[in-house]
Design a binder for these strands. Structure first.
Lengths: 195, 195
DNA sequence: TTAATTATGTACCATTTGGTATATATTTTA
DNA sequence: TAAAATATATACCAAATGGTACATAATTAA
């Protein structure tokens, strides 16, 4: 099935997941190869044979995260009877995160902030992710305006970007105020626009 | 005037300014001592004699930036006849930044994002800065509600945090859409709340 | 059963990192 | 003018960095 040669001794999905979580926690530069090899449980030989370089692995991790996260949210919204309410609940659940999740923030937002002036290619991967998120918002806002689920007649492009900015803002604000009490009212105030 | 000993050969304000700009551009970890010594035009001897360590210098830079930036905005608002309009204009001017400013973003937001899970002490300096910014918003929102300059009766604490989140969101959104056209409508949509 | 193929473990490496030690230079104070 | 005090320049350093070379192990195809 998988051709000749010694078989891989690890589960690709598992090591990618582990690496992604580490990059998420520490950022790109502050994650060392030693760290990566430890959490992936891989030796140097396997690491470089399989992933080429730290940078290549990072790219794979971002793509891995991108597809998983976007698929998840797309499914959530596609299977909801009131997608706008589901979008609102996604933001509300942000406020209810535990401390760890608050301090981790959004993987894509973190990458953009760390690498904006340092590595445009890596930054673009993260930008593309957030643009997909915005596109999901836009799609469901347009639908809701058409079906009458929301009454606001504002340009849906602006509304989607408004939500993207709420998302991005929370990524920083949640580190300053890592608890529901301090976040939820600010978030609800944003959501009053979507009606 | 300044006691015995060989006098310093550099302007403290200038080297601090140069170091701050470099940290702003590259972040904490990605800024090397070599980089710092170059932009500060200092040798190793002077560097360590005067600033102790890279980390100590960073702390000085954040404090330096914090006081300058907060003083500037506080003055702007204190000297305005309609502080709420001035706040709105601050956000509008964000949208009008040049590409460089868009990619640099907010120094404090960048620090929080890079160091949230890595260095709580450094992160706290940046958090304190953004809390001061929020406090300025709050002060002038309360005033405007009292004088009738704005009519909205929403809890001013929530309104101030709403603006803080707009600020934080722009820090990331501006990297994705680094131009006025793509930012201004989203920003204006936020500002419609403040009336 | 042997050759081809792929994975793994290990020893090694050049570069860069933040930092120290120390000799020397320049100033003020006594 | 000598001593004390501070600044600067330079040589040096240990540790960590990402990465390579290569021998060996494990599998399949011929």
């Amino acid at each position: 099935m998988s051709g000749a040669g010694r078989p891989k001794n690890y589960d690709k999905d598992k090591v990618l997941y582990a690496a992604t979580n580490l990059f998420w926690e520490k950022g790109y530069e502050s994650t060392s190869l030693e760290d990566l090899m430890r959490v992936m449980d891989l030796g140097k030989g396997s690491f470089y044979n399989s992933f080429g370089s730290k940078r290549d692995l990072f790219i794979e991790c971002v793509r891995y995260y991108d597809s998983k996260a976007i698929d998840h949210i797309a499914d959530l919204l596609a299977n909801s009877e009131r997608p706008i309410e589901e979008i609102k609940n996604i933001f509300r659940r942000c406020a209810e995160s535990n401390k760890t999740a608050h301090f981790l923030g959004c993987f894509a937002g973190n990458i953009i902030t760390e690498l904006a002036t340092i590595d445009p290619e890596l930054t673009n991967l993260a930008k593309a992710h957030l643009k997909k998120l915005e596109a999901l918002f836009l799609y469901h806002i347009k639908n809701a305006q058409r079906t009458g689920d929301i009454q606001i007649s504002e340009n849906p492009v602006f509304l989607a970007r408004f939500l993207l900015n709420l998302w991005n803002g929370i990524n920083i604000t949640r580190r300053i105020y890592p608890n529901k009490k301090e976040l939820i009212n600010m978030i609800e105030l944003h959501l009053t626009i979507l009606k």
